Simulated scan of single mutants.
Amino acid sequence: MPVALFDAEGKLAIDEALDRGEAVVLPTPSPLAYVVAAKTAAAVNLARERPHNHPVATWEPRFDRLAPHLALDEMERRRLGWLLAVERVSVLAPQARDAAAPSWIEPAASYGMALLFGVAWEPIAWLLERHAPLFVSSANRAGAPPAVDLRQAVADLGPEVWVLDGDSLRDRARPHAPTTTLRFVPGRGWEIHRRGIQDTLRATAGRGDYLADVLSRADAAFLRNQLPRRQDGRGGRHARRSRTSDRAGPVRLARSHRPRSGAS
């Protein structure tokens, strides 16, 4: 497997591989795992030795390109944008009934929901600026654990797949794993669809209710940006935390009673 360093020559190799339609393995920021990405879903699935039409995620960090094609009201769009860009989770979001939906959403869509991966990271900003939207999945063959460092990525994927070595840019002392995946279900609200590194780290630290916490932080971030600053320099009050279900199964967030601005 060819390995590209984070220098001009290595970046050029990754850039050219994507232009040729090949899949490449890319680092993402700690504590996330490596991912395999390409301009087509088929190339991602080929690298992972899966059927060519297996669902993948759409990787588009420019949220303004995603938002018009999602069936979310304004408040939930704000939350989603923060969840993708800041919390760096993956999200299953409801699609709008849009006959003009772009082709780069379709491979990530199933049963009216689109799987979104919005991670933006300065070391790979040059690549995303040039190639996004991409299709993305975890960097491993089916049934194997996701690659969390260069050694695992090289050992697990085929010898023809370029790997961008980002180990030196990541905190290798920390545990790494794929992202937590959240989903928004109209009529039910936010749920945890798949456990991942974000909620695992919170549980390991002995803190509960990841979903309520992350949505509270999303709302608080928006309030800090929108409310007038007081003279003492502090922002307004924190957003009220939402309740979640304690039952087994998907973790659910009760619907907010705040006025909605209208569905998309």
Rank of each mutant, 00 (worst) to 15 (best):
D149M: 01
D149W: 05
L150D: 01
L150C: 12
R151P: 00
V154Y: 03
D156L: 13
D156E: 15
D156Q: 09
D156P: 06
L157V: 00
G158S: 07
L164R: 01
D165I: 01
D165F: 02
D167I: 00
S168G: 10
S168Q: 14
R170L: 03
R172M: 09
A173M: 04
A173V: 00
H176Y: 02
P178I: 03
P178S: 15
P178E: 13
T179W: 00
T179P: 00
T180S: 06
L182I: 03
R183K: 11
V185P: 02
P186L: 12
G189E: 08
W190G: 05
E191R: 02
E191K: 02
I197S: 00
Q198Y: 02
Q198F: 09
T200D: 15
T200E: 14
A203E: 15
A203W: 15
A203S: 15
T204N: 14
A205Y: 02
Y210I: 02
L211G: 04
A212P: 03
D213Y: 14
D213W: 11
V214A: 04
V214I: 09
L215D: 10
R217F: 13
R217P: 07
F222C: 01
L223H: 13
L223I: 04
L223V: 06
R224H: 06
R224D: 09
N225H: 07
L227M: 15
L227N: 15
L227C: 12
R229A: 05
Q231E: 15
R234D: 07
G236K: 09
H238W: 01
A239T: 07
R240F: 07
R240Y: 08
R241P: 11
R241I: 05
